[in-house]
Design a binder for these strands. Sequence first.
DNA 1: TATTGATCATGC
DNA 2: GCATGATCAATA
Length: 246
Amino acid sequence: MNGVHARARKSRASCLPEAALPWLSPGQRWAAAPSSEAELLERAHRLAGCTVADLAACFDVSLPSHGVRAKGLVGALVERALGATARSASIPDFPELGIELKTIPLDARGRPRESTFVCTVRLRDIADSAWEASPVCSKLTRVLFVPIEAGTTLSLGERRIGAARLWSPTRSQQSALRADWEELAGVIGRGDVEQITAHLGLHLQIRPKAASSHVRGRGSDEHGAPVRTLPRGFYLRASFTASIFK
DNA sequence: TATTGATCATGC
DNA sequence: GCATGATCAATA
């Protein structure tokens, strides 16, 4: 059974543990876009300390009683609270600022609990593209990581927003990601997409990205001829994102 | 227990 | 179907 939801009942005022969120007005469904990077960072800092339940109450959103139904919910709530404007378009969450937003669950020791999805693998043209022009490189140019304190003892609503960090890859991180990407792109370019496993890549890996393992998307074989295969995505390993929060 | 492969929700 | 947002849960 999956229809049982617990509606958050706290008033808007209770979503402000320490500081007000002045850019949010009562009843607002989505925050207005921040006008500058400074404003975005200010908002992110003020969100620190809020719980997921607080945020859900702000927007009158029900929290699923079972975590399996909540995938992506925290990310969507933070988007709304910070005023991301991209919605589901293939552009940065804050297009005018060139900033991508990612929430990342941390365990009690401050280590990422999960890998981080980056983007879908463009199976048909990745072999002919360069790292610098790749969606992976673009997406990871400037990322606002919003950590979520998500220890195993905490329920979804008890999870707490942490201190955000605006990150850009260092030169060594950039070259390491590039090396992984080029290895993976090479395998796909040889027409060996079915040989790809999540074991490949030191920091960047490829894993399925689909509603189920039966889904088929469009790819190319080694001659460029169309093939149908499981859609896949690039993910950052938790060991990589851990270095961002050290 | 860390990791991989599979899966869930929403919008267009 | 494909884009966004991710975490679940079986297994190594």
